[in-house]
Amino acid sequence: MDSAPAFRVLRGDPEDAELAALVAVLAAQASPPPAAPARSAWSPLAAPTWRTSTLR
């Protein structure tokens, strides 16, 4: 298995904090966004259901 680096610094001499910030940004871009939580049927923003059928 070839363990080639994912990226390399071509110029300059980054400090540890700068390199860590770059890795954090790249890792955040690579991960999928979190799934949205399911909305409760009791939420006032939920679609009309049996709970609201008597209000018409």
Rank of each mutant, 00 (worst) to 15 (best):
A47C: 05
T54K: 03
T54M: 04
W50D: 08
A28E: 15
S3F: 12
T54I: 07
P33S: 06
L19V: 09
T52I: 00
A47I: 07
D2C: 02
R39W: 03
P32I: 05
W42E: 12
W50Q: 05
V9R: 04
A38G: 12
W50E: 03
M1E: 10
R56M: 01
A46C: 06
T54W: 06
A4S: 12
A24H: 14
L55Y: 10
V25R: 15
P34W: 05
D16P: 00
P34T: 08
A36E: 15
A41M: 15
W50G: 01
L22W: 06
R8C: 09
R39E: 05
A27V: 10
A20K: 08
L26M: 13
R39N: 07
A17Y: 11
L45T: 13
R8K: 13
A6L: 15
A20R: 12
R51S: 01
A41K: 09
P44Q: 10
P37C: 05
A27E: 11
R56W: 07
L45K: 15
D13S: 12
L10G: 04
A21V: 11
A6E: 14
T52P: 02
V9P: 00
R39T: 08
D13C: 08
A28K: 15
A21G: 05
A41E: 12
P33C: 04
A21F: 11
A38C: 12
S31H: 06
P32D: 07
S53H: 02
L10M: 01
A4N: 14
T52Y: 00
A27I: 00
S3N: 11
P34V: 09
A30R: 05
L55R: 14
D16Q: 14
A46W: 04
R51Y: 00
G12H: 05
D13R: 12
M1G: 13
G12A: 02
R51G: 01
A38I: 09
L55S: 09
V25S: 14
S3P: 05
P32Y: 03
A46K: 01
A4V: 11
W50I: 04
A38L: 11
D13Y: 13
A17I: 13
Q29A: 15
F7E: 00
A21D: 13
V9I: 04
S40M: 06
